[in-house]
């Protein structure tokens, strides 16, 4: 298999382990890195090292953070009584882009998926429960992905949180804004019809 000598093959192997990078892409990136000036390659290496050293997970919400708390948890202007539960840190970025949400987050770091050996214990579920009382949380928005694992996770959390006497909501699924009905796939459109609301003028 390995046609290249030591260091080159090591580099290709490491790159190939990254998500979304196959053997061919790994090879292309490796050769690119070998071709560019040393300073550029070293800058990349340093960026990786520094990020690994400096970036940790927020102690409270498990978002990426530099320091003990992430930018959102340390921001006093955020509404402290509403929590939006997401699967991954990158989902926070998506929700933040809406500029609709002013509360805080909780990152589960995954979704329940027995196939991959992930149960509630592997997720930050206990940590979520531990936040409810001290932070005076009154609403939890379950913002996991609308796929089989995400829905199961939302259902699990819903059952766990509802008895605690707070408002538990699930994000709606439906049509993209600004799109055309005719281009919507039948599943999304079906869900949008299911979740229709009465028209109040």
């Amino acid at each position: 298999m390995s046609v290249y000598t030591g260091a080159v093959q090591d580099l290709i192997d490491e790159l190939g382990r990254l998500p979304g990078v196959g053997p061919k892409s790994a090879q292309r990136i490796a050769f690119h890195l070998l071709k560019i000036p040393t300073v550029d390659a070293v800058r990349l290496a340093r960026a990786i090292t520094e990020a690994k050293e400096r970036v940790t997970f927020c102690e409270r919400c498990f978002n990426l953070a530099e320091g003990t708390l992430c930018g959102i948890c340390s921001d006093d202007r955020r509404e402290p009584h509403v929590l939006c539960v997401v699967e991954e840190s990158r989902d926070i970025v998506a929700v933040e882009r809406t500029r609709e949400y002013r509360g805080r987050y909780h990152v589960l770091q995954g979704a329940i998926s027995p196939i991959e050996g992930i149960g509630p214990d592997q997720l930050k579920v206990k940590e979520l429960l531990a936040r409810i009382d001290p932070e005076g949380v009154t609403e939890v928005i379950l913002c996991t992905n609308p796929n089989i694992e995400g829905e199961a996770t939302a259902m699990y959390l819903g059952r766990l949180l509802s008895p605690l006497g707070l408002t538990v909501t699930r994000i709606a699924s439906g049509l993209p804004v600004g799109g055309d009905l005719e281009y919507a796939d039948e599943l999304t459109l079906g869900r949008a019809l299911e979740g229709r609301r009465s028209f109040d003028s």
């Binding site: 329940i112 027995p114 149960g119 509630p120 214990d121 089989i148 829905e151 199961a152 259902m155 699990y156 059952r159 766990l160």
Partner: peptide, 13 residues
């Protein structure tokens, strides 16, 4: 009990 709670969810689904 923990596993039972997870199984409840998969049962419903």
């Amino acid at each position: 009990p923990d596993a039972a709670a997870t199984l409840d969810v998969w049962d419903t689904r």
